[in-house]
Design a protein around this nucleic acid. Structure first.
Lengths: 209, 209
DNA sequence: GCTTGACCTGGCCACCTGGCCAAGTTAGGT
DNA sequence: ACCTAACTTGGCCAGGTGGCCAGGTCAAGC
């Protein structure tokens, strides 16, 4: 079984970077399972099968762990689930397919969204980390724009207002739908809302010139 | 001056409910100022000018305080800032005015949004409180629908897909715009996005039959 | 004045938190 | 075989946490 959290490697010299990686992944597991508040340095080390002392050998402080999480580990890879695009279909249909593909990734791992939200809120308080959420948002925006461009190429369309603004609008709806769904957990309502916005936003799409 | 947090009433017999109210308001102040995590029972009592012992005379546990906050105190009153509606103007213009009025309340007190977000996330973890966010969402949805109805009446329009679904869509955009803005703090981007969505959603509005 | 019950409080408790460190262990170069 | 520098660890610390309670205080009713 070798279940994480109970296993305890006897002793193994490891470069600090490798250990940092193990710790950040363990932290993410704990946060998803028990909440960001429950991710104490001890809980994280236990999850990673390390003694508590290992933590402050790898990280100067807990904030450094937060920073590592926000800059590297939290990646909801949109391109992972890429929908089939039919160049012949109406843009609204293709856009709806795209939105649903995103939604699958949200439903598949809701805890990831909660952790991201909580971690962002936490970082905003810490002066040392307060810049990270903005950075993370820009990164997210860029990747969304890339996906939108790829989508536009495959569907043979272009965006009336430009890709960047389209990306901001799409992210707004995704973020809102996710937030609301985390509260009400109404799958149907969320999907319907996304479908409707797919239709609306299709109005900003036109055949490529 | 009588600044809150330092003043300390000598001793005053108060019905428990009044004291509870004082504590919840003090808790809200602390959370907005220093974050939800900083709102310890001691910090809250200090803010309210009470000894620490008072807390557990009024509340059985800290969770009970959270519940009191989520069910009564957190009210972002949309109808407080009601825009002027011009029945002669295009629906898109009126809708944009409505959206901007909402946005003013967000920008006026961003910390309230953060507290609401964090508190919701926290409640979702606690089995005892996990139902409250859904309840809160329904309440929010109803009040949004009421406002939309009032708006429709004043602007002499109606909603093609029904008020309820319109409210869900509007809330989705509001929530998303707020979340994104809390990260990037780009006022212009947020306003532009809201303006664009006002135009898009105006497509779901038609003259009253 | 006296009784009663609601109200009030300082101090205590067990537990947990992030952070630190001296002493020990390992692996690789020479 | 030895040295060195990187790595590992259990234990310790000061401070903070939510929760509890015995004993004190107050105001109202008689």
């Amino acid at each position: 079984m070798e279940s994480a959290g109970t296993a305890r490697s006897p002793r193994k010299n490891l470069p600090v970077e490798a250990r940092r990686e193990l710790l950040t992944q363990a932290a993410l597991r704990v946060m998803k399972r028990d909440g960001v508040g429950a991710a104490t340095t001890r809980a994280i080390c236990a999850e990673a099968g390390m003694p508590h002392g290992a933590f402050h050998y790898c990280f100067r402080s807990k904030r450094e762990l937060y920073a590592a999480l926000l800059t590297t580990d939290i990646d909801v890879d949109l391109s992972a689930v890429w929908p089939e695009v039919d160049p012949g279909a109406p843009p609204a249909d293709n856009l709806r397919t795209l939105f649903r593909a995103y939604w699958e990734t949200v439903v598949a791992d809701p805890d990831a969204q909660r952790v991201l939200t909580d971690l962002t809120g936490l970082a905003l308080r810490e002066p040392e980390l307060s810049g990270l959420p903005a950075w993370e948002h820009r990164s997210y925006l860029e990747r969304t724009a890339e996906n939108l461009d790829r989508f536009a190429a495959e569907a043979h369309v272009e965006y009336a207002r430009g890709t960047a603004e389209m990306a901001e609008m799409v992210l707004t709806v995704f973020s809102g739908a996710t937030t609301l769904w985390l509260s009400h957990r109404d799958d149907d309502a969320a999907r319907e809302t996304l479908d409707r916005y797919a239709v609306l936003l299709a109005g900003l799409v036109r055949p490529r010139s």
